[in-house]
Amino acid sequence: MAEFLQYSITGVTVGMIYALIGLSFALIWKSSGVANLALGGLVLIFSWIFYAMLVQVGLPLWLSLIVVLILALAFGWLIERFCLRPLIAQPILSLITVTLGLEFFLEGLAVFIWPEMVAGLPPLFPIEPLKIGPAVVSQAYVWAAVISLILFGILTLYFRYHKMGIAMRATADDQLAVQACGIPVTSIFSTSWMLACVVSAIAGILISSISGLTHGLVETGLKAFSVVILGGLDSFIGCIVAGPIIGLAENLGSGWLTPIVGWGGLKDVIPFIIIIVVLFIKPYGLFGEVRIERI
């Protein structure tokens, strides 16, 4: 029972971070219809930048956080302006592959600047473990989940009440109509990329504060695709529901199946198996909008 609780709590909290990465995907998909496959690269690069600011430069925590967020905004703007904007109205395949090229570039950049593969962040949160019933959870997990939830709340409110958020939703609905209303679509796109970069930066910092900083963070970013696929691509609620489900499946599955089948590393493959299963059964996810196509 204690084991079950332990796995569940870890799973749900890590799942919240996955949900955050998924949220960053949904932000871009919702407003501009671009599938951002460079998520892994973004998560990777921002967590390493955070490490560089905090440890290598030696800035205080709040300042390095601010620097990372500003850099994230700048990155988002640059990516949208120079990679995505020239490709507006190109086939979807080009839009997907341009983000793949971006992913390649960001991974190379991380190796270029930080060849040392593995690094440790100093603990960002108090290290005394929390006791929940019989389970013992490190505070970092709980904090990460709380921060994810807060961000989720802020973004939901932003999309519901803020003028820019409403404009973003409108753009997702009908670009032509939005342009006719005098909303600058291009600035909507760059705002969504900037927001998405900020969200993935925070997710990267949270996940690297829990599980250490390696170049394998790219795979964490790729795992988050199972969240968006399960939740439905264009749904925030989908992300926040599917994230913990993926986290739970990952942790419970590997915790229970590993002793039975004797294979290690099940954790790394369960999200991908979930992707395949979801695509077979319910390809548009739990909350996704089913698109009906016409010729």
Binding site: C83, P86, L87, Q90, S94, T97, V98, L100, G101, L102, E103, F104, F105, L106, E107, G108, L109, A110, V111, F112, I113, W114, P115
Partner: peptide
């Protein structure tokens, strides 16, 4: 040059080449 130059420059270059081709000569 930073120590990761030799191993990091190739992927960076490929990424840039792919993006450039998509933008300039799809």
């Amino acid at each position: 040059l930073p120590a990761g130059f030799a191993s990091g420059i190739a992927p960076m270059l490929f990424g840039v080449v792919i993006v450039l081709f998509l933008v300039l000569e799809p």
